[in-house]
Design a protein around this nucleic acid. Sequence first.
DNA 1: TGGTAAATGTTTCCGGTGTCAACATATTTT
DNA 2: AAAATATGTTGACACCGGAAACATTTACCA
Lengths: 208, 208
Amino acid sequence: MKKTGKKASDSYHHGDLRNVLLSVGARLLEEKGMEALSLRELAKVAGVSHAAPYRHFSHKEDLLAALAAQGFVNLSEALLQAKKASGHDARRQLTAGGRAYVNLALRQPEMTRLMFGGVFRADQCPEKLIQSGGQAFQHLVDIILLGQKNGQFRPGNPLELSVTVWSTVHGLFALLHSGALGEVAQDEKQRESLLQTVTSVIGEGLKQ
Amino acid sequence: MKKTGKKASDSYHHGDLRNVLLSVGARLLEEKGMEALSLRELAKVAGVSHAAPYRHFSHKEDLLAALAAQGFVNLSEALLQAKKASGHDARRQLTAGGRAYVNLALRQPEMTRLMFGGVFRADQCPEKLIQSGGQAFQHLVDIILLGQKNGQFRPGNPLELSVTVWSTVHGLFALLHSGALGEVAQDEKQRESLLQTVTSVIGEGLKQ
DNA sequence: TGGTAAATGTTTCCGGTGTCAACATATTTT
DNA sequence: AAAATATGTTGACACCGGAAACATTTACCA
């Protein structure tokens, strides 16, 4: 077994294949879309034989799950960033987080589709995924808890309120990206106005 | 060309293949999931050769789009039904519609995933789809307009408010079905409580 | 240090899939 | 009835996910 994570010579052993597959996979995912991503092409781009990925991922869904887990980590970081930049006002944290979510999702629609698109059946969802997803969710719950302590938000089950907010923000992305909203989704200005309305409604609804 | 839509003899020509493909396709879609639905299996179940579907759908996505369009029609009907059963109170119409949406979506998750999952790229989304989707959306807009006329809902762009509501409801389904909510999604009681919270927050947020 | 077990990559093979082209048959139109 | 058109069939192709058998490199231990 290797220890140093460096690379072997140029020949038989790749040396860092798993990570390369993940990063190349993330790129191809956005480029070609979830359903068009093939392990064989991925292997070819990574410069390796078509069966090599199976040494690192037992099947395709395994690779997809690993990609999604990374996506949740990135989302988590984006939310944390937004929260930090918004002082101690829960409502401002919330709108900042919502904006960060939608922006990130629109920049990586295929990744987001993978994360929340129901690709992984709930009953056999990999543990790693649930865990990294839960961590991202926790940031939202924290905001709700802060707002309730401040008296900015209504009382009530904070988990349910968090899900409400998440639903709205994620639904907004889903509708924007599904094409169901037609031209609205394309125009930056209209999108911004829409986001404003959505956060306003949710903000008012959370007030106590 | 046939005219009567009846069936030909048992042999060469099927007589009603397009409709059969659609109905069998809808069933297989729910059973096996969107990504596992294959035209070849569909043809086999329909009792026809593997290339026959291509006489009715130019490619697989075409068949999927036709299925999704039918899904929008069904959604439209469900929303209309809910609206009719709720008198002239906009807020009651809204919660009834939301409940109808989530219930229908949970009963046909794969269909809903197909409709809103971003499978069809917005720029080349079939016209038929946009149209039938828009029709379902209109029912929601009507409710908002009614509420604004009644003074029950805040003023503002009704399209944006409609999108806000739709986002929340659809996002709730997406999260429930994605597995991101873990056990919550399985328990009928918790789900009901969640739906209650969501509609309450949205309802409050829409008040003027 | 040397030798062996484990890890990792390759080749080969299989069944299944979307799609096309060439062909066959039924239906509609003239 | 003949011709045109719609609809179904057969066969081919390239690609895919995945398993099995084989090759090579690396890690570990006596």
